[in-house]
Design a protein around this nucleic acid. Structure first.
Length: 104
DNA sequence: CTTATGACTATGA
DNA sequence: TTCATAGCCATAA
């Protein structure tokens, strides 16, 4: 099953609770690959066509910014989705990781 | 086997 | 503070 790097990443992302966000490096570390943050992001791209509904919108940059070029229907959609789950945003357009960072 | 790519992160200016 | 560059590593060709 989870023999692939991507599937492992999806498994970790699925564990992110609602109203929380995790950075790519955070997910990478939990899957046993603390240096593979980029590969996690790459796996998220593949998760768009995967059944099981991977909450890839809860994965953000280490500084709390959202992924550029991303689109579930529009970059503004991701922010709207996170706000709907209770995630707070700062005036700078970044997630308030100070209070919304995921705690495994 | 090597090369190219990239939804990252850390560092420096 | 923002912007640019280097390093990192899995996947595809």
């Amino acid at each position: 099953m989870n023999d692939g790097f991507f599937e492992r990443a999806w498994g970790v992302v699925r564990q992110i609770p609602e109203g929380r966000v995790a950075s790519y490096g955070q997910v990478a570390r939990l899957m046993g690959a603390p240096r593979c943050a980029r590969q996690v992001g790459y796996a998220m791209h593949g998760s768009l066509g995967v059944a099981g509904g991977v909450p890839c919108h809860r994965v953000v940059f280490a500084d709390g910014s959202l992924a550029p070029g991303f689109a579930f229907g529009g970059p503004g959609e991701q922010r709207r989705m996170l706000e709907a789950e209770g995630v707070r945003f700062l005036s700078s357009g970044r997630v308030d990781m100070k209070n919304c960072s995921w705690e495994a």
